[in-house]
Nucleic acid binder design. Structure first.
Lengths: 132, 132
DNA sequence: TCTAACCTTAGATATATTCTAAATGCATGA
DNA sequence: TCATGCATTTAGAATATATCTAAGGTTAGA
C-alpha cells in the first residue's frame, strides 16, 4: 500500500483513496482489463466510486507512464480491403493508418514462444510520417 | 461495378444493391474506416440503407475474406501495467492476452520505411495457447 | 412463376467512453 | 490550525461503436 502511494507521488500523481484503490488493482493485474472491468473490480471494496473517476484515473495513469493503453482487442475496429499479409504504421499526429508491405520488416522468433501456436502476426508501428 | 458483383459471387455472397454499394466503397478505400464511417459514406448515394445492414455486411465480408477487421485504433482499450517494451499474444479461443518479453521476437527494418519516423512498435500475434 | 431461404429496415439495446456541473477534498501559505 | 484555491469526485447525460429484434421485402433456383 505504502509502495503504491510512493509510486503515485513519484509519478506526479496527487494521491486520493480512489486512486490508491485503482492503483492497487491495475498496477498488479495480468488480466489486461477494460476500464469498465476495473470499475467493477474496484467497486467491490469502494462501492461509491464513479465510472468517471475510474476512466479519468486510468487516463491519468497512462499520461504519467504508470500503465499503457493498448487498443488491440474489443469493440472498435477498422476495415481494411487489403487481405494479404501486411503491417500497419499509425501516424500519431493525424491518426492516419498506412499499410506497410509484408517485406518492409522481418520478424524472427527468438525464444520463449514454445507455448504459443502462432496463426498470424503483424507489426504495428507508431510515429510520424515524414513530409516529402 | 460488374467486377464487384462477380467478386461477391465468387466469395459466396448473395448480391444485393446494398452490398454492391458497400463493396464499391470498402473494397477500394485506403482510409481504414470504422463501420459507422462506411454507413455515412454509403448513405450519400443510398439514403435509406440502415446501420444494421452496413454492420451485417461488413461482418459478412470479413467472414468471406473480402476485407479484414483490425482492432488497432479507436475506442476500446485495455490497460497494461507492463510499461516496458514487450509484445502481445492473443489466444483466439479465450481472448486472453499474454505479454511476451521483448526478446521473444526480433524485428528488423528491411525496406520501404524511409518515409516513416518510427517512435515505437510491437508485434501482435494471434493463435492458440498450447496446454502444457 | 413459386417459394424457401435469405436480406433489409427502424428502432431498441448493449457496450465502451467522455462530458457536464455541482459538491467535495487536498495541499499550501498565513 | 485554518482559510483559500485548485484539483478531484460524483451522478447522470451525452457520444461513439456495435448488436439485436421482429416485421416486411428480395433473391436464386426449381
Amino acid at each position: 500500500m505504502m509502495n503504491q502511494i510512493k509510486r503515485l507521488r513519484d509519478h506526479g500523481v496527487l494521491v486520493t483513496p480512489q486512486r490508491i484503490a485503482i492503483a492497487e488493482y491495475i498496477l498488479k493485474t495480468k488480466a489486461h482489463p477494460h476500464a469498465d472491468a476495473v470499475w467493477v473490480h474496484v467497486r467491490r471494496r469502494h462501492p461509491t466510486i464513479s465510472r468517471a473517476t475510474v476512466y479519468n484515473t486510468l487516463n491519468l495513469f497512462v499520461e504519467k507512464g504508470l500503465v499503457k493503453a493498448q487498443p488491440i482487442t474489443g469493440g472498435a475496429v477498422i476495415f481494411d480491403p487489403n487481405v494479404r499479409r501486411h503491417h500497419h504504421f499509425i501516424d500519431e499526429k493525424s491518426g492516419i493508418i498506412y499499410d506497410l508491405p509484408w517485406e518492409a520488416v522481418k520478424v524472427t522468433a527468438e525464444r520463449g514462444l514454445s507455448g504459443f501456436e502462432v496463426r498470424e502476426y503483424q507489426v504495428v508501428l507508431r510515429g510520424r510520417r515524414r513530409r516529402r
